[in-house]
Nucleic acid binder design. Structure first.
Lengths: 195, 195
DNA sequence: AATATAATTGACTATTGGTCAATATTGTGT
DNA sequence: ACACAATATTGACCAATAGTCAATTATATT
């Protein structure tokens, strides 16, 4: 194999190894030696591709979130979903469904991305919104036997993801009829969470 | 001094020391010994108050973001701001102003909280929204001689913060007239960023 | 096939994390 | 005020991990 392909292959195998270990044991409990061993390369090689563990972590998260958004937007375009409210519903559907299908990604997020922005006050709003969002989410997690430690924070993060997308669309200056959009949003979230 | 007060004082001084060092050198380049030294306590003491550096980091960020939200909501109530669009504008104003006043907090966020969710596609939306949001932000940072390394990511994060608050309000089921709200929002952001 | 260039390695050192027996401080009963 | 118990604090110590680099191996070039 030529050098260029080999480089790409090594980088990919390091990223994959890290993702596997981060998901299983958490970033904190994974050493660079662990990652190198899992990827089947020497430790020194790690430092040829990444500055340190944090650098790899950032690249990994950026890749995953970029893929999520890019795939969502691509799919949205191909399905010619144009109205703003439909777009938002689609993106939220997409994120939740993607995470439900991709349990390792959900676990990775749940285990490693607490963000620290988790806010009790905001969490309480989610609690008391009368939609039973949290209950549905936890019910679904139990039903599908998904073993994550902190479903509340995970739900919070899914909402963060969705909300940043919402806001981006506002920034994009597209027409937004929120009154029309809200019942669809609620319905979509409920449907998704209650299977 | 009695034990209870001493405990609170030690914990506070550890948090303050950590915040100072995290802001100056970044979390990565700050050791637990550094934090203990800065706080004027032995290293062992650190472990009486926090499980590890990540635990302290989480508490620190939770405190800061809770304070930001709590203060914003308190102020909003005391000023009897009730309409949804006015509430959103107020909260965004509050976050940006608070960070402009509290440069160390802005630096701390800028230096340490990249989130990894920074997304080129979404960033491009912010770039191309015709409001000159990014240019204004960078202009303001330069004008006030604020020395942060990655203003783009920082702006992105401010928008994340604001958007999660927006979304929480949607969850709270309050009336939202987005068409009425949008020009106010844009105007408010512009005004704030252009001084 | 010989040589140059680039990639890889893991033994090595330096740094940091985390523990714990010894010490100091504060609280309590007489 | 004193003795004693309970609690908090410490930093020397050991273990784990990060990060380096001279030696080695693989690939490219002529």
């Amino acid at each position: 194999m030529n050098m260029k392909n080999k480089k790409v292959e090594k980088e990919t195998s390091l990223l994959n190894a890290a993702f596997k270990l981060f998901t299983e044991k958490g970033i904190k409990n994974t050493s660079i030696q662990d990652i190198a061993d899992e990827a089947g390369v020497g430790k020194g090689t790690f430092y040829l591709y990444f500055k340190d563990k944090f650098d790899l972590q950032e690249q990994l998260i950026t890749n995953k979130s970029n893929k999520l958004f890019t795939d969502a937007l691509k799919e949205m375009e191909s399905k010619k979903i144009v109205g703003f409210s439909d777009q938002i519903i689609f993106i939220i559907n997409y994120i939740i469904d993607e995470l439900a299908k991709n349990i390792s990604l959900l676990k990775f997020i749940s285990k490693n991305l607490s963000f620290g922005l988790y806010n009790e006050k905001i969490n309480k709003l989610i609690d008391n919104n009368g939609l039973g969002l949290k209950e549905s989410f936890i019910k679904r997690i139990k039903a599908e036997k998904i073993d994550i430690e902190n479903p509340e924070v995970t739900l919070f993060m899914i909402i963060e993801l969705a909300s940043s997308t919402c806001f981006s669309c506002i920034m994009k200056n597209e027409p937004l009829a929120i009154e029309e959009f809200k019942p669809h949003l609620y319905k979509a979230i409920r449907k998704l969470l209650e299977k």
